[in-house]
């Protein structure tokens, strides 16, 4: 099965989702991220969904789970690049993704993580 590449940048992990997500890939990503956070001692995770044209409840649940997982593993997760149409749809669907940090793009996401790391 195709797995999504996870890049390590400094003390952060970056996943940029560029393909149409299958459910098995979503589950694999969740597992891989938990492994890599522990393996690398990363303090932050940036998940870039700029290219995703939809986020349904399954993918939404993965994002929430990764955020919760990373918090337990002492890392912060930021979801970046959500498209307006996707955000509007998620709200209508009833998913507000409480507790997940968000940013407009990868750069802002990384800045948010480094600021947050210093503050907390």
């Amino acid at each position: 099965m195709e797995r999504l590449p996870i890049l390590k940048i400094g003390s952060m992990l970056l996943v940029s989702i560029q393909v149409d997500l299958r459910d098995d890939m979503v589950i694999a990503l969740q597992e891989d991220l938990a492994d890599r956070i522990v393996e690398t001692g990363a303090r932050g995770v940036v998940i870039d969904i700029t290219a995703l044209d939809i986020v349904d409840s399954f993918t939404g649940r993965m994002l929430a789970t990764v955020a919760a997982l990373s918090r337990i593993l002492d890392a912060e997760t930021v979801v970046v690049g959500m498209r307006p149409a996707v955000a509007i749809t998620l709200v209508e669907l009833g998913l507000s993704l409480d507790g997940i940090k968000t940013a407009l793009n990868v750069e802002r996401g990384m800045r948010l993580l480094s600021l947050g790391g210093a503050a907390t």
């Binding site: 459910d23 044209d53 939809i54 986020v55 349904d56 409840s57 399954f58 498209r83 307006p84 149409a85 996707v86 509007i88 749809t89 209508e92 669907l93």
Partner: peptide, 17 residues
């Protein structure tokens, strides 16, 4: 519209699953 496309595709994704 783009938003309506996204809503429909998302609904389809839920229902297909």
């Amino acid at each position: 519209s783009l938003v309506d496309q996204t809503k429909l595709v998302t609904a389809a994704s839920e229902l297909a699953r």
